[in-house]
Design a protein around this nucleic acid. Structure first.
Lengths: 253, 253
DNA sequence: GCATGTGCGTTTGGATCCAAGAACGGGACG
DNA sequence: CGTCCCGTTCTTGGATCCAAACGCACATGC
């Protein structure tokens, strides 16, 4: 926080129907998702307010909201820190995600997807294949894939037609997406993920509820296994780093 | 809000480690859970502040938190209303709960429960049998059963050892528990629920993961079916009432 | 050298005030 | 009579100020 002026993006005030509090919440959310606000880091109301060009009031409103969203940890009279995730936490979240994403796919298969949605999914898969055919991997490709992947899942969510389920999934995903780094993946994993999507779409097209639920749950389970393994590795390296940095100050708690 | 002075319980200030904002949030949460704050009702910051003997600041903090918790709906520049649930909403939530509670039971069976926990569950079931043997039903019996039921599930949650899952379940339950009325149940349903608990405990004792997951999911599914049917009936009556009251003002939206 | 206590500065929680936005009511017009 | 417009009032969002709580650094005692 103290060393990077661009930690949160200065908010644009005046967007229709949005308060400054909402804008601040989004700026912080983005800062977390993009890794600029690190797990365990303290959020200082005054600094955020100065950085974003607002008073403390909307900052406090935003912090309260984000804490309830699970992105921040709150201690009364001490303030907010960015939620820190252990590999065990991530594993827990993925177990829940396996069930929820599986349910969403099963409901989508049960309800059926429109021709437009299926067409859209095929287009997204076509674009993913073009990414695969570059035989390369970098941050830009990863971001493109994340975007395509999100659109792919949005089609499923819409067909599932269960807003509470989708809200619950998005909440779980919110916590996770800030943790993922592009260099954990590569073109090979992209291809594997894509092949899983192919099978999932087949199940959806054939309205095979159990297959869709199983395939999507398995897809998420494998993804979770990889991310948890990576996080464990990082924790092992972090643990060594932490031992050497012990006694750093408030954030060291 | 305007007609009932006891809508929220006046907060007790000074409880260790809790801010007024947290106290206000709990008072409102209780008001919703106990049915004193009705779905669709507007929450007025000034009135709440006066009623609770605080300034608007902690009220606003509490409202932001409760909105993110899903208990309130927020409209920028217009404020907060208590979330209104349609029977479709409730059905959606129960579909998610079936999966999550099933997962919790499966994890508990996998991890195993301590002798103390199993003993505790047997004691709770014994107390439930005493309730059944009264062959009667009233609000007091219902409240006792809700308490026993919560303790029963707490044992499962603890054994599941997945904090994120339990947090997600509690979040779903928070929305639902404010909707349930004791006269929707009777001694017969209590017995049925109890018998389902007996089978669930058997699966847990035998560490039968799939059976535990299935039985708990089924238990929640049946409960959901009953509550949704009740809610639909209320909506039908409410719909007639609404037609005759149309144009009542803001809450009529 | 370590533990405990004290003081000071910083940060957060709450209160109050001001301004902006929404809602409501009344009047005018078709 | 219904709809639209305007003015007023109420409510909410934001800013600012004050006080309480916490954390950190330094001093003292064992």
């Amino acid at each position: 926080m103290r060393d990077d002026k661009d930690v949160v993006t200065k908010i644009v005030v005046g967007q229709a129907g949005r308060t400054r509090g909402e804008e601040v919440a989004e700026a912080i959310r983005n800062g977390i998702a993009e890794g600029r606000l690190a797990g365990g880091g303290r959020l200082n109301e005054n600094e955020l307010a100065t950085m974003l060009g607002v008073s403390r009031t909307p900052v406090r409103s935003a912090l309260a909201t984000l804490a309830a969203d699970g992105l921040l940890d709150y201690t009364p009279n001490s303030g907010y820190t960015v939620r820190r995730f252990t590999s065990g936490d991530i594993e827990d979240i993925f177990k829940v995600r396996v069930k929820l994403e599986g349910l969403a796919a099963g409901l989508a298969a049960q309800n059926g997807l429109s021709d437009a949605a299926l067409g859209g999914m095929h287009r997204l898969m076509g674009e993913t294949e073009r990414l695969i055919d570059t035989h390369s991997w970098n941050a830009e490709i990863h971001n493109t894939w994340v975007d395509l992947n999100n659109q792919f899942h949005d089609h499923i969510y819409e067909a599932a037609d269960n807003p509470y389920l989708i809200q619950t999934i998005r909440r779980a995903n919110l916590s996770l997406f800030s943790l993922v780094r592009f260099h954990w993946f590569d073109n090979v994993l992209l291809r594997q993920s894509h092949e899983e999507h192919i099978e999932l779409v087949d199940a959806l097209e054939n309205r095979d509820v159990q297959r869709a639920e199983f395939l999507q749950g398995e897809h998420v389970y494998r993804s979770g296994r990889r991310i948890v393994a990576r996080w464990r590795r990082m924790e092992a390296m972090d643990g060594e780093k932490r031992i050497s940095e012990a006694g750093g100050g408030r954030a060291g708690k």
